[in-house]
Design a protein around this nucleic acid. Structure first.
Length: 408
RNA sequence: GGAGGGGUUCCCGAGUGGCCAAAGGGGGCAGACUGUAAAUCUGUUGUCUCUGACUUCGAUGGUUCAAAUCCAUCUCCCUCCA
């Protein structure tokens, strides 16, 4: 069996490690319990979390035991890392509801059956802490001077940093200590923005328990331009099908930059490296083949094979064969369309395809609106029941956005 | 607690009584070119019953023929001092 450390390294996961050699040896010698924390600050996981889950899955497949920490307690405080201003405070109810959503999504990629992986909520131990006890047990081991030199705080010295956020590092470090005691957890993984927090935990264990603990961070998923991936004009790409439909999810990966394809294949799919290297050799327009594979594989991991096939077929028929398909977003009219017809702008506005009528006029005046593949040039264009081919009206907005309207 | 500075449209940021639906940039959207890529260029970017009307400049009141701009109160943020 090859060492999972080498696998992660080859695929480009690893950013920093506390002790590269020792972690490598440890992972080769024994089954290691490790943990990754997820703060439930939204009601769905996003692409950044997905990368962590992939890493956990690789580790689990190699025989190690993951612990997923839901940060019910830490979310109450808010991590200042990678933030230019303070996070919005969430209520306990919001956090609990978000944690439920996280649990469901995680179980798709990590196997939690029969104790193969554990899930903990740090609110179990963080919320009951006594302030003075905590300071005496944990606080004594942290040097403020050193904390201030950490990048995540340094950048905030300009903008302002509140005391509550300053404590986040101690809480996450304490998590690691608790898990070490409870489950003999010796390794913490996380995004590279977690480096300072992870170091804090490993240090704390060394000081309090006198034992070695390790940390390792993964590269953040960024585009070749250094921007965070998974953000689009309309917000983040979510793993929840309700928030980001599988078709849109598929299209996101179908449209990644050429220069990011190889990286994404390595990080976000389980395809063997040999195949990835082959796909990466494709150049120019043939790189589209690699993008199709990427989009399909990633969609399959998140939404299952059936949805992935649907999304792929929908995309193919729209872009390549130009025939109708079942799986593009479909809207059913509430009221039966009268034979007098309806103004196209009113129709699109009432179905939510355009946010305002002004937007609709702009779209038409710029030639970006098509009904049944015919460009609309007139603001007063009427849509009649006869325009519905087999009960369906195909709306195209710009080059890539398709909608289907059904007249019941 | 004291002193000062500030909250402008999706974001940054100009605007100090009418010419302001508000410069400029970013972002977004659309078009051209392409490979459903990138880069580039062009147009556009509050709402509507759209050559006009209505709503917006932290909140509420006020002054004025007229307020993002002046006054009062409130609120939030930042900087310095304690």
């Amino acid at each position: 069996m090859s060492n999972v450390f080498d696998t992660l390294k080859e695929r480009g996961f690893i950013a920093q490690t506390t002790h590269e050699e020792e972690i490598h040896d440890l992972l080769a010698k024994e089954k290691v319990t490790f943990y990754v924390g997820f703060d439930p600050t939204a009601d769905s996981l996003h692409i950044g979390h997905f990368l962590q889950l992939m890493a956990m899955s690789h580790m689990q497949k190699a025989g190690h035991r993951p612990i997923a920490i839901l940060g019910g307690g830490t979310a109450m405080v808010g991590d200042p890392s990678g933030r230019s201003d303070m996070r919005q405070m969430l209520t306990r109810e919001q956090i609990a509801a978000n944690a439920e959503c996280f649990k469901k999504q995680m179980s798709g990629l990590v196997d939690f059956s029969e104790g193969k992986a554990l899930m903990e909520d740090n609110s179990d131990w963080l919320l009951n802490l006594k302030y003075v006890d905590f300071l005496r047990e944990v606080g004594v081991h942290f040097s403020v001077n050193r904390m201030l030199t950490a990048e995540c705080f340094k950048s905030r010295m300009e903008k302002g940093l509140t005391f509550i956020e300053f404590n986040y590092m101690l809480m996450q470090s304490y998590d690691f200590l608790v898990l070490f005691r409870k489950h003999n957890c010796r390794l913490q993984l996380g995004g590279d923005d977690q480096w300072a927090n992870i170091l804090g935990g490993a240090d704390l264990i060394r000081r309090v328990e006198g034992k070695a603990a390790y940390g390792m961070t993964f590269n953040l998923l960024t585009t070749s331009e250094g921007k965070k991936m998974g953000k689009t004009q309309s917000g983040a790409i979510w793993l929840d099908a309700g928030k980001t439909p599988p078709y849109d999810f598929y299209q996101y990966w179908r449209n990644v930059d050429d220069s990011d394809v190889e990286k994404c294949l390595k990080l976000l799919t389980f395809l063997p490296m040999g195949q990835i290297r082959e796909l990466s050799l494709l150049k120019d327009s043939r790189i589209n083949e690699a993008k199709k594979v990427l989009a399909f594989e990633v969609t399959k991991l998140i939404h299952g094979e059936a949805e992935a096939i649907k999304a792929r077929d929908a995309a193919e028929s729209l872009f390549e064969k130009n025939t109708d398909s079942d799986s593009i977003p479909c809207i059913t009219l509430n009221d039966h369309l009268s034979t007098d017809g309806i103004n196209i702008i009113d129709l699109l506005h009432s179905t939510g395809i355009i946010p305002s009528k002004g937007e609709g006029r702009r779209l038409i005046s710029q030639g970006g609106l098509y009904v049944n593949d015919i460009r609309i040039v007139d603001f007063d264009h009427l849509v009649n029941p006869d325009d519905f081919k087999e009960g369906c009206l195909l709306i195209r907005k710009g080059k890539k956005s398709f909608h289907k309207i059904v007249n019941k």
